[in-house]
Design a protein around this nucleic acid. Structure first.
Length: 735
RNA sequence: GGGCGAUUAGCUCAGUUGGUAGAGCAGUUGAUUUACACUCAUCAGGUCGCAGGUUCGAGCCCUGCAUCGCCCACCA
């Protein structure tokens, strides 16, 4: 009879087991694909399988969304490893520039009442680095607690020296190709954070605003409407639709007016962008303070008059308005219009106000000198392995993003996100990449008088000063699939593991990140960064609400792991969760899978105490017809579960495993075998014992990617001659 | 305003090519010195949002509508 360890006679206790098992894996070295080859586990010519972990921000701790991400990827990775692939899961963390800096700044201001300017660049950076390091350590321990089998020997950080070299190399290449340019444009300026932000970092809040309809002066012929009266000081034109018969006689004329004490020169222009049905059908054009007006100004050669500064205060030379906040200036102008009888109408309308995602500041469009990535500018693609783009041909960055998905070089799961993706690409404008914050990759450009130098290192000679700005955090994360593998050097890793197989991430960062990775990999390497994009949805609470600090409804994955075991948490996150769709998690659901783990534990105890001297090495005895039938059923399940895993249907694979193990194996097979196990019919008994042990072993193997800890623990006590770890056990084939 | 998705048992959700509606939780009734009460069996519960269409056959395909959710744009 097999030896039964004492612990098997008690209910399964996850917390003490999981930490020990993880240590066992780490010591084995099997997270590292080269170690697997050295130890003869993986064939040297095995097909590679790579996933890079989307690097969590070093802004705090992990939430359930991260836990889902880690679990899903770990399932794919463990499945691939057991199937003999050269499997690499490369971990890392993201410096998350603006998010991290604003968090640390807030903390410092709260505790010490000091701003970043009180501390200075060097001291603030020192504080941020310290915070990032602590946050990093917490995050890594959390990732490990959830069982992630990633190769820590290759761990990377988006702001370390190796990644900085990759960032500077791409920047210089793009600069030389004319794809990174410095120019004046309207930017989204966050007066609170004192930095530009990208279009994607804006969140719209619906508020009520007053729409004023007025004339600049008594003799000005066309009334206009606006909610932002204070910007009208910067107007240089009034635009009407070319077909609007009401105003045609005025088009092309110039007017000099004095508006609230400020002289303005207003030209009447015709532009198709104007909606004749809105307001008066005439638009006051403010090129300095509106994206659309800026573009209109470019088309018509209008002067740009800036009247608002970086602190959202007025800059005009007028005693009433100078240095007033925009909101105060609006009141002053409204009062003046009333007094002068120029105000025709005031009405309350709902309006979407642009606010900065990280600071909550109201975004002020301002013209500023910034660095941009030109997405529509043609360049010569020297080397391309991308279907639809020939080496040496002219293309654009936007084209790369489009073609890779359109030609199925990249598949997005679920498929319908491809439509959303294309829609976004169509509307994409140039990407503003410079940020006026201190934490991040410094722009690799130096200035001296009128000279400008772009390079990997500071230029020689005196008097050069580096650009003060840093890069948008997504610039460095967009290089992630290849900067982590040693690029710009032609490393062995890069040759073997790139392009990666799967990018698994949240659907909300399809544009922020996924699209930009496709752009950068296409540009820098001429390849796709990955072949499949697997998107997961948001993990919500039991009532379907987003988990948030303010609601206090967050579930900490570590609490879950301690209370129910990481295995139970993993299973609860995966079962019933379809790609791209939001899911709900509750302690009840996790508890159900803790019960499942215990069921496996108990069934193993039963099998081991009833199989006599049968081991996994025992040759297959003559099986009874019923046992043959049972094995055929198992084969069907094995085939189906394998197919589900191959096709990213993790929810179905998990459910089928759960159902087979509990309601077929435990409830039916074990129950019906009980009499045979205690009978005198030796042939029937041997058959039953052999079949029981092999069904159990097969299930433990197939469950391993989902619940790695308990399966590894049980595998260690299954009777067999040669002991080895389950993590590298070959994936079961049908009998 | 444009796009995308969802609507299936009391709740949360599956349902891969069209072929007799499924699971978990909750509920009913019962069992039991049991591998396991973190158990087992049993029952109940659904005109698959609504209206049309295609088909021998539709939860699944097509059209329209309703409600909810998300994304993008931002009309000044």
């Amino acid at each position: 009879m097999a030896e039964i360890p004492e612990k098997l006679n008690k209910p399964y206790e996850p917390t003490s087991t999981e930490a020990r098992i993880y240590q066992l894996w780490e010591e084995s070295g099997f997270f590292n694909p080269e170690t697997c080859i050295e130890k003869g586990v993986t064939k040297p010519d095995a097909e590679p399988y790579t996933i890079v972990l989307p690097p969590p921000n070093v802004t705090g701790i992990l939430h359930m969304g991260h836990a889902l991400m880690i679990t899903t990827q770990d399932v794919m990775i463990r499945f691939a490893r057991m199937r003999g692939k050269r499997t690499l899961w490369l971990p890392g963390t993201d410096h998350a520039a603006i998010a991290t800096q604003s968090k640390v700044e807030k903390d410092i201001y709260k505790k010490e009442g000091k701003s970043r300017h009180d501390l200075g660049r060097e001291e603030l950076l020192r504080r941020i680095k310290q915070f990032a390091q602590e946050s990093h350590d917490t995050i890594v321990s959390q990732i490990k607690a959830f069982g992630a089998s990633c190769d820590w020997s290759r761990e990377a950080f988006t702001l370390d020296a190796a990644r900085n070299r990759a960032v500077n190399t791409v920047f210089k290449k793009m600069y030389d190709d004319g794809l990174i340019v410095r120019k004046h444009r309207i930017v989204n300026w966050d007066p609170k954070g004192q930095t530009t932000i990208s279009d994607d970092e804006i969140v719209y809040e619906e508020r009520k605003a007053i729409l004023y309809t007025f004339k600049y002066s008594k003799d000005f012929p066309i009334p206009i409407s606006t909610t932002r009266l204070e910007t009208k000081i910067g107007d240089t034109a009034v635009a009407v639709h070319p077909d609007d018969t009401r105003y045609q006689e005025f088009v092309g004329k110039d007017y000099h007016v004095v508006f609230c004490g400020v002289p303005l020169h207003i030209k009447i222009i015709a532009d198709k962008e104007v909606d004749p049905s809105f307001g008066t059908g005439a638009l006051g054009v403010t090129p300095a303070h509106s994206q659309i007006d800026w573009e209109m100004g470019e088309r018509h050669g209008l002067p740009v008059v800036q009247v608002i500064n970086e602190f959202a205060r007025m800059t005009v030379e007028n005693e009433h308005l100078r240095n007033k906040k925009t909101t105060e200036a609006r009141e002053i102008i409204a009062a003046w219009l009333r007094e002068e009888n120029l105000l025709i109408k005031e009405e309350e309308i709902p309006q979407n106000v642009s606010t900065a995602e990280r600071t909550g500041g109201i975004v002020e469009p301002l013209p500023k000198l910034q660095w941009w990535v030109a997405v529509n500018k043609p360049f010569n693609m020297n080397h391309s392995e991308i279907a639809g783009i020939a080496s040496g041909s002219q293309t654009t960055l936007k084209e790369i993003m489009k073609v890779t998905v359109a030609e199925n070089s990249i598949t997005i799961i679920p498929e319908h996100f491809e439509k959303t993706y294309f829609h976004w690409i169509e509307n994409l404008r140039d990407w503003c990449i410079s940020r006026q914050i201190w934490y991040g990759h410094r722009i690799p450009v130096w200035y001296r008088n009128d000279e400008l130098y772009c390079g990997l290192e500071a230029p020689t000679g005196d008097g050069w000063e580096q650009d003060q700005d840093t890069l948008d955090t997504w610039f460095s994360s967009s290089l992630w699939t290849f900067s982590t593998l040693g690029w710009p050097d032609a490393t062995k890793d890069l040759g073997i593991y790139h392009p990666t197989n799967v990018l698994e991430t949240g659907s909300e960062i399809l544009f922020f990140w996924v699209a930009r990775m496709i752009l950068m990999s296409g540009y820098a390497l001429g390849t796709v960064p990955f072949r499949t994009v697997y998107l997961h949805g948001t993990v919500r609470d039991a009532q379907g609400r987003k988990m948030s600090k303010s609601l206090g409804n967050g579930i900490d994955p570590i609490d879950i792991a301690q209370k129910f075991g990481a295995d139970a948490g993993r299973m609860a996150l995966l079962v019933g969760n379809t790609p791209g769709t939001d899911s709900r998690i509750s302690e009840d659901k996790v508890k159900a899978y803790k019960h499942f783990c215990n069921k496996i534990w108990n069934a193993t105890r039963f099998v081991l105490t009833n199989i006599g001297d049968t081991t996994l090495d025992t040759p297959r005895p003559a099986l009874t017809p019923r046992d043959e039938e049972i094995l055929t059923e198992l084969n069907t399940a094995t085939t189906s579960i394998t197919a589900h895993l191959e096709n990213f249907r993790f929810h179905l694979a998990g459910e089928e495993l759960y159902h087979y193990f509990w309601h077929t194996f435990a409830d039916i097979i074990i129950e019906e075998m009980k009499p045979r196990l205690s009978s005198d019919d030796e042939a029937s008994k041997k058959s039953a014992q052999w079949v029981l042990l092999h069904i159990l072993a097969t299930n433990i193997k197939m469950l391993h990617p989902f619940i790695p800890f308990i399966t590894e623990e049980l595998w260690s006590i299954l009777p067999r001659h040669e002991k080895s770890l389950l993590i590298i056990e070959p994936w079961p084939k049908p009998f």
